[in-house]
């Protein structure tokens, strides 16, 4: 396994984004409504297992992550991604709105939490806050 993998930056200087959600319409919505120029989608995955596989091949800088998914859920996936690339920024996007789940995700290495359903504006604000928190706010 490629522990502590280093992401190769895109030649256009953008940050690499991976979208992980078992819903095709949510993956497409996030991709379509992405209003942040500094982010470029490099991969999408329909469950945690596929996300880890894609991430090993090409680690993203930023990941949006659902929690309730088949094969491997988002919490376990977060743990795996952080082992591969500790500085990856992960925004959980989930319908699970209890505090305990949010806290567990943050403890495992996620950096932010956006509750479904969400508006385009809420998505943009959550991603901007994630980048600001990591000092990537230009």
């Amino acid at each position: 396994m490629a522990a502590n993998a280093k992401a190769e930056p895109l030649t256009n200087g953008k940050l690499k984004l991976m979208i992980c959600d078992d819903s095709n319409i949510i993956r497409r919505k996030i991709e379509r409504e992405l209003k942040i120029d500094r982010l470029q989608v490099i991969a999408t995955a329909a469950n945690g297992k596929l996300a880890v596989e894609a991430f090993r091949k090409e680690p993203a800088d930023v990941v949006t992550m659902d929690i309730t998914m088949p094969e491997m859920d988002g919490i376990e996936c977060v743990e795996n991604l952080v082992k591969i690339k500790p500085d990856v920024l992960i925004l959980i996007i989930s319908a699970l709105s209890d505090k305990a789940t949010a806290i567990e995700a943050l403890k495992k290495g996620a950096n932010g939490f956006l509750c479904k359903p969400f508006t385009d504006r809420q998505l943009t604000e959550a991603l901007e806050e994630l980048l600001r928190g990591a000092g990537n706010d230009d």
């Binding site: 819903s23 319409i25 949510i26 309730t68 319908a95 699970l96 709105s97 209890d98 509750c115 359903p117």
Partner: peptide, 12 residues
């Protein structure tokens, strides 16, 4: 997704 979101939100 509708069923999942409404059920997930109920955990609040």
């Amino acid at each position: 997704e509708v069923a999942n979101t409404i059920s997930g939100n109920a955990r609040r």
